[in-house]
């Protein structure tokens, strides 16, 4: 466990000591805030609440954010060869994978949290708007946290499979885009309106939680995928010592 904290500290330092982290944060904030404000502007005067628009905006940009964060995790270490130095020290594969995962997750949340302030600023600036429903915000936020657990674990695994960051990014992006795409596809193609497919729609899950309906099914789904992906990542890292 001690090694986990050492590696996590190193991971966060590696992220926040470079300008790339701040550029990523700024781009994600601008894109999400702009999408949110644009949607709210279109829906002014309708009965639509602010919270669903906020989480729609976050969900739209989240796959890209997670892809950017995760693409370098292991691919970069493999490319530079530092993985060899790291894995020939008395450090377990589990500590390495979990530290990288936790570092990526924390960075992801640090990027997302400021976006949540946008509706508050908007309400303060526009007295005509309804107040922000904090319970809806907590419900939606909890689901975004669960989704980030799941997608980041997919990103960790894809980054482990290659030494090329572009390949890692493409694999990660397409793997996590599928459940994000279920909702938009449902609205266009009737085939996707089946109950089985609907169960995998991340958008539906978030909206369910925003509306105050708590369901165990998406929680179990995201946690199971997270555990499966992290377990696979640990096994992949160990596999260099298999035959």
């Amino acid at each position: 466990m001690r090694n986990f904290w050492i590696l996590l500290k190193r991971e966060l330092a590696a992220v926040f000591l470079t300008p790339v982290a701040y550029v990523t944060m700024a781009v994600f904030f601008s894109a999400s805030a702009w999408t949110f404000l644009a949607t709210v502007k279109v829906k002014v005067g309708t009965a639509e609440y602010l919270e669903p628009q906020l989480f729609s905006a976050i969900l739209l940009w989240l796959p890209m954010l997670i892809t950017v964060i995760c693409m370098r995790l292991f691919a970069e270490e493999k490319r530079t060869g530092t993985i060899e130095t790291l894995m020939t020290t008395a450090v377990g594969e589990t500590s390495v994978v979990l530290a990288k995962y936790a570092g990526a997750l924390l960075f992801c949340w640090i990027c997302v949290v400021p976006v949540v302030a946008v509706p508050y600023i908007l309400v303060e600036a526009s007295p005509g708007l309804e107040r922000v429903d904090q319970y809806a915000l907590i419900g939606g936020g909890a689901m975004v946290v669960l989704i980030s657990f799941c997608c980041t674990s997919i990103g960790v695994l894809t980054s482990l499979l290659t030494r090329n960051q572009i390949v890692a990014a493409l694999c990660c992006f397409w793997a996590i885009l599928a459940p994000f795409m279920v909702h938009p596809l449902m609205t266009v193609i009737p085939f996707f309106r089946q109950a089985t497919i609907e169960r995998f729609s991340m958008f539906q899950h978030v909206m369910l939680f925003v509306s105050g309906t708590l369901s165990l099914q998406p929680v179990v789904l995201y946690l199971s995928v997270t555990v499966l992906m992290l377990f696979s990542a640990i096994r992949v890292l160990e596999s260099r010592r298999w035959l």
Binding site: R10, T80, G81, E84, T85, T88, T89
Partner: peptide, 14 residues
Amino acid sequence: RRRIGYLPENVPLY
């Protein structure tokens, strides 16, 4: 791993 000091070829460092 505790007993060795290993320097890989090309010295990968952060």
